[in-house]
Design a protein around this nucleic acid. Structure first.
Lengths: 186, 186
DNA sequence: GCGTTTCTAGACGGATCCGTCTAGAAAATA
DNA sequence: TATTTTCTAGACGGATCCGTCTAGAAACGC
């Protein structure tokens, strides 16, 4: 009946989401149990299942929030006045920076795609993110550019993420950024 | 004392590995329990733990076998007389074919890297495969070619696998194959 | 202060996980 | 055939998983 949820509930929900994000991303989704999430969040189990009907719902919400945070971050780092190739390069360099920061555990969305292949809500959240990612790249290179170039840049981005995950070597990621810059400039 | 293991043991071990490969790859490593593997393989649990001291050892052995099978397949598909760019393209097209065959569930090694981040033996098997992969690419483009090109092709390969996993659209994989061909030819 | 509503704390169930262990069958050797 | 060795069948333990449920505390309106 109230137009907005009471604040205490929002807090619980936010604590759950923030804790889930930390644990799911750093230790893996399947390796993180609901009991661990609620314990670290300091929230009752009943509340958890009040806000999220299942673990799958919590995962999907975590991914949606991760997608929002990602878009905010790359938008903040972006400089709309710079040439497209530079903007693309910067997108990749953000990954390298995260590797350097020691907080990179792979792309949350490809991780989830592999860890939760049988969760429709999770797959839907991944698909939503992929559309946002593609739209962002397309917006950088320009709406008049072929979809083929956008696809190639996304392939490079996925490859950069795999490189980052498997090597944790930011120098290699920066080489991919240079590669992407060349492709975007051509 | 015998120079070779009795055949019945080899059979059990092979059945375990073949079954593990099927289940781990199609349904995921964490989603597949040891009990399921031994039931489908028709092997006693004690035998399983005779051949493999732990699930981690079984996973690592599965990955090593997968790496051998992969190298055999791409070597068979390869034509050493063809130009490097064509050979590279064919490597990528093999992925597209597997997508078309409906038996592609992602790269077994990146899947394992995400599913088993805390298993040293598994990570070692992944690293072994990555070295073989890189050596194969380098052998195609020629030992005199820069490592930078090899790295770029591997990034493309990883990107193609992610595309294949998330879209299951072989047409997109074929576009990446074309992309890789151009990069290899330049 | 009182009654109503909402949330919390955590026990519990049923299932599954990995790995061990015992008991008995099968195979090998003589 | 008798003995020794090796493997199998599957029960079992302890831990963890997700989700439900009950009982009681806290917040709210009056």
């Amino acid at each position: 009946m109230a137009p907005e949820t009471p604040q205490i509930r929002v807090t619980s929900r936010m604590k759950l989401l923030a804790t889930a994000a930390d644990l799911f991303y750093a230790h893996g989704i399947n390796a993180t149990g609901i009991d661990t999430v609620i314990a670290q969040a300091g929230v009752a189990k009943g509340s958890m299942y009040h806000h999220f009907p299942s673990k799958e719902a919590l995962i999907a919400a975590y991914l949606d929030e991760e997608a929002d945070a990602w878009l905010d971050r790359v938008t903040e780092l972006d400089d709309a006045d710079a040439p497209p190739a530079v903007r693309i390069e910067r997108l990749f360099l953000a990954v390298a920076d995260q590797v350097d920061g020691g907080t990179f555990y792979g792309c949350p969305f490809t991780n989830a795609a592999i860890e939760c292949p049988d969760m429709p809500d999770v797959q839907a959240a991944i698909a939503r993110y992929r559309r946002v990612l593609r739209a962002h790249v397309k917006e950088i290179v320009g709406a008049d550019v072929t979809d083929s170039l956008v696809s190639r840049l996304i392939v490079l981005y996925d490859g950069a993420l795999t490189t980052a995950k498997l090597t944790r070597d930011s120098a290699q990621v920066r080489e991919v950024a240079q590669f992407a810059r060349e492709v975007a400039a051509a």
